[in-house]
């Protein structure tokens, strides 16, 4: 399982997974080289960032859109890194060769030496195996502890970092918001919003209380609105007759008209009419009773 990735110097280094303890057969030289490279790379970035911060703090103007050129400090660190890396690589190769030679020599010596030496070697081997087994058993606990420490430290660390950053400015500077908005399907988002719930949570009365309705009304051109209203259509749709009838019923306009016009029908004549109509009804009932007839519909 080899996942080589190419570094900017054209040198092949092991992927990061090979830096973990489980990669038992990792090449020592590659490991060392990658570690040194990473350390110096980080140092170079840090120095570069520090230099920019110092320049910004001291008021030296740096045009933001211009591609940044490596500073003197970063160049010096980079050179030192390259030099150290070359040395380290040579030393690692030499150490690996020496280790292999020493191991071979030690093995030969033990095999050729007294039996006590072989027992010692086997004893050391067993102890190493036991230690390895113990480590493997406790490794999960160690991982869990490390994870918990990380979980405890991470939020505070992130919060401290975020406190120093102006995220809004970063988003505005670095994010192409137009493109983001183009990518977002707002219809889907709106469909997922429970408008009813939102409205329920809004205190509309409080909002209305805060609005100066008089000021709003003063700005409305009522004449223009009325001009646009189809009043004829509205009136056609209104049951004017029904409204008028109910109003007149309430006012008893009929009696007012009767009083004011003094028509032929006077109250005395009305009285005669009502009484005679009642007498009609009475006679009808009487005759119906005598003839044992059910009164016809509508004749009372």
């Amino acid at each position: 399982m080899e996942h080589p990735s190419t570094h900017r110097d054209g040198e092949t280094i092991a992927p990061i997974t090979h830096l973990t303890p489980v990669a038992e057969d990792a090449d020592q030289a590659s490991l060392l080289g990658a570690a040194v490279l990473a350390a110096f790379g980080a140092a170079a970035l840090a120095v570069d960032a520090l230099g920019r911060a110092v320049r910004a703090a001291s008021g030296v103007d740096e045009r933001p859109n211009e591609p940044s050129t490596p500073s003197g400090a970063a160049t010096a660190v980079g050179a030192a890194a390259a030099l150290t890396l070359a040395m380290g690589r040579s030393m690692a190769k030499a150490a690996a060769a020496a280790g292999r030679g020493a191991a071979f020599a030690a093995n030969v010596a033990v095999e050729a030496g007294p039996p006590a030496l072989r027992r010692f070697r086997d004893d050391v081997g067993r102890r190493a195996t036991d230690l390895d087994a113990t480590w493997r058993e406790e490794r999960s606990d160690a991982d869990e502890i490390a994870r918990r420490i990380g979980a405890a430290l991470l939020p505070e660390t992130v919060a401290a970092v975020l406190d120093t950053l102006d995220l809004t400015a970063i988003v505005v500077d670095r994010v192409d918001l137009d493109r983001v908005i183009e990518e977002v399907d707002l219809d889907v988002a709106v469909r997922r919003v429970d408008i009813e719930a939102v409205v329920d949570r809004v205190d509309l009365q409080a909002i209305v209380d805060r609005i100066d309705l008089d000021a709003v009304a003063a700005r409305i051109d009522v004449d223009r609105i009325v001009e646009r209203v189809d009043l004829d259509g509205v009136i056609e749709r209104i049951d004017v007759v029904g409204i008028a009838r109910s109003v007149i019923e309430q006012l008893d306009l009929a009696s007012l008209i009767r009083e004011s016009t003094e028509a032929v029908t006077t109250e005395s004549i009305e009285g005669v009419r009502v009484h005679s109509a009642n007498a009609d009804r009475y006679v009808q009932h009487l005759v119906d009773a005598i003839l044992r007839r059910r009164p016809p519909e509508g004749d009372g």
């Binding site: 009929a254 008209i257 009767r258 028509a263 009419r273 009502v274 109509a277 009609d280 006679v283």
Partner: peptide, 18 residues
């Protein structure tokens, strides 16, 4: 314009007394 008690009468067939 009729009094309320006369409205129901209107159109009904008149009786013998009237």
């Amino acid at each position: 314009a009729l009094p309320r008690e006369a409205r129901d009468l209107q159109g009904a067939t008149a009786g013998i007394v009237s």
